[in-house]
Simulated assay, not measured.
Amino acid sequence: MPALDASVRTQVLDLLDDIQQRLGTALLLVSHDLSVLRRISDRVLVMKDAEVVEEGPADEVFDRPRHPYTKSLLAAVLPAGPPRGATRPGTPPAAAARPR
């Protein structure tokens, strides 16, 4: 989603999160944008040359990567932002976290 304006991107991700939470659906998201994956994923699968090199809970893969390729991917990007459900100071909570 790098081509989207930051506010539109946030709205799209909030909408996907809301749909997922409200309907209890699973989403399969394929992306090179690690900040999007960190924000919306419960589980992550990392592939290199069409081979799975690491997989597991998103927090584990992002915070304690085991495979050298995963480590190199994470080292090559700026900090990804807060994990799913967390908010940055001064930002409203995600749609799913707001009271109804």
Rank of each mutant, 00 (worst) to 15 (best):
R9N: 05
R9V: 15
R9H: 09
T10V: 12
Q11N: 04
L13T: 01
L13F: 07
D14V: 04
L15P: 01
L15H: 10
L15C: 10
L16Y: 00
L16R: 02
L16P: 04
L16N: 11
D17K: 06
D17S: 14
D17C: 02
D17G: 10
D18P: 00
I19R: 08
I19V: 11
Q20P: 06
Q20S: 10
Q21R: 06
Q21L: 03
Q21E: 08
Q21T: 10
Q21G: 02
Q21D: 04
L23R: 07
L23W: 02
L23M: 12
G24N: 08
G24H: 04
G24S: 06
T25Y: 02
T25K: 12
T25I: 12
A26D: 06
A26P: 01
A26Q: 08
L27C: 11
L27F: 11
L28K: 07
L28S: 02
L28V: 15
L29M: 12
L29T: 06
V30K: 11
V30I: 13
V30G: 08
S31N: 07
S31W: 02
S31R: 07
S31A: 09
H32F: 04
H32C: 13
H32I: 01
D33V: 00
D33K: 13
L34G: 08
L34M: 10
L34V: 07
L34Q: 05
S35N: 10
S35Y: 01
S35C: 11
V36K: 15
L37D: 02
L37K: 06
L37M: 14
R38V: 09
R38H: 14
R38L: 11
R38S: 03
R39N: 08
R39T: 00
R39Q: 15
R39I: 02
I40F: 04
I40K: 06
I40Y: 01
I40S: 07
S41W: 01
S41F: 00
D42G: 02
D42T: 15
D42R: 15
D42H: 15
R43K: 11
V44D: 04
V44G: 00
L45I: 15
L45Y: 08
L45C: 15
L45W: 02
L45M: 12
V46Q: 07
K48I: 08
D49E: 13
D49M: 11
D49C: 09
A50H: 04
A50M: 09
E51F: 01
V52I: 11
V52H: 00
V53N: 13
E55D: 02
E55V: 03
G56P: 10
P57I: 00
P57Q: 11
P57S: 08
A58V: 12
D59M: 10
D59F: 12
E60A: 13
F62L: 14
F62S: 05
F62K: 13
D63R: 14
D63N: 15
D63W: 09
R64I: 00
R64S: 14
P65D: 07
H67L: 11
H67R: 11
H67T: 00
H67P: 07
P68E: 14
Y69M: 06
Y69I: 01
Y69S: 10
Y69T: 05
Y69A: 10
T70G: 15
T70S: 14
T70W: 01
K71T: 05
K71Q: 15
K71W: 00
K71I: 03
K71S: 13
